[in-house]
């Protein structure tokens, strides 16, 4: 018999290294000789979209389009350390470092403009569209390119950002071990075949707090990816570690979801800006996975009345539990 059920799971997740560990990102912003903005950062792109999001943050901070950003990342030869692409920390940590470096560069550009335009104050000076100008008298303007040409030495600023956390008190467990946290809720509908123990996830909805959605399309991709990893985690993926040996060390035995296993996921992106984040943004890479497996297990309970306490809920395990129930 096929039985359907729905389930909800909620999660919160502290991003970054946490526990008072120095979670540092460094970034350099430089006026290139052609008037474009060079961003030098050790951040690593592994497909999550760091290169895109970090360039967007730089473009926003400098008031230029993304085509005017020259982005150099990863190579340790010419970029400062921005920490690992881990702990869902690049958008928040490195994004903040880039924003700070760009703000320093902007200030540097303003001081050069004051000198070149013979102004008496930084008040009312704006930096946008690749030029520095006086808002009340826009004719008084100098382009980034002209500033670059006039420079005798490179205009370059390096800044760093360290996430603020404390070590947890050993005795009491108190403290602020992570910041920021992100919150999410998943809802799923499953269909359980009580004869085979096979669980199919029919549909899913995810509401994910992101602080600020810098790139909604990439965010949706993170949610789909996180859900599919959680789907495998909840129902399929089992290393079978026996005496230090991984028994399921092949894709023929370590089963991960295919396109046929994956349901459509409705996404609700919740924007509640985080004051310490770059333009309010927080990391979502890992958080998008957290609540999905509990939602699936709750849906199984709703469908067949069996509370599964071990994952993955493979057909043999579920069948055994169903038999025990009867």
């Amino acid at each position: 018999m096929k039985k359907r059920g729905i389930g909800i799971g909620c999660g919160f997740y502290g991003t970054g290294y946490g526990n008072g560990f120095p979670d540092v990102s460094r970034a350099r912003a430089k006026l290139e000789t052609d008037g474009k903005i060079g961003i030098y950062v050790g951040a690593t792109e592994v497909g999550q979209g760091a290169k895109t999001v970090l360039q967007q943050i730089a473009a926003e901070a400098m008031g230029v389009s993304i085509e005017d950003i020259k982005f150099y990342c990863e190579s340790t030869e010419n970029t400062p350390d921005a920490g690992t692409a881990a702990a869902s920390r690049q958008t928040y940590n490195t994004g903040n470092a880039i924003k700070k470096a760009c703000e320093a560069l902007k200030e540097g550009l303003i001081y050069i403009a004051i000198d070149k335009l013979l102004l008496n104050s930084a008040v009312g000076i704006r930096v946008e569209n690749k030029k520095v100008y006086l808002e009340s008298y826009p004719q008084s303007a100098i382009s980034f390119e002209d500033i670059a040409k006039a420079l005798t030495e490179p205009l370059c600023f390096e800044e760093s950002f360290t996430a603020g956390t404390t070590k947890m008190e050993e005795e009491s467990g108190q403290g602020a071990p992570y910041w920021p946290y992100t919150f999410s809720v998943y809802g799923v509908e499953v269909e359980v075949d009580t004869q085979t123990g096979f669980v199919e996830v029919l549909k899913a909805v995810c509401a994910q707090d992101v602080g600020r959605a810098i790139n909604p399309q990439l965010l949706e991709g993170q949610i789909d990816g996180g859900f599919s990893m959680a789907l495998g985690y909840a129902l399929m993926e089992d290393l079978r570690l026996t005496n230090g040996e991984i028994r399921n060390n092949r894709f023929s035995s370590y089963i991960i979801p295919t396109a046929l296993d994956m349901p459509e996921v409705k996404k609700i992106i919740v924007e509640d800006p985080e004051v310490t984040g770059p333009y309010g943004a927080k990391g979502v890479g890992e958080p998008v996975m957290v609540a999905a497996a509990p939602a699936i297990l709750n849906a199984i309970y709703n469908a067949v009345g069996v509370r599964m306490r071990e994952i993955p809920v493979t057909p043999d395990r579920l069948l055994e539990a169903l038999m025990e129930k009867e």
Binding site: G221, D224, F227, S228, A259, V265
Partner: peptide, 20 residues
């Protein structure tokens, strides 16, 4: 049918939906 057509190609990152 698209899901069936790419079911022999595993992907760990995307969750397939944007590929569909």
């Amino acid at each position: 049918e698209i899901r069936e057509g790419i079911s022999g190609n595993l992907c760990r990152c995307t969750g397939y939906n944007k590929i569909v």
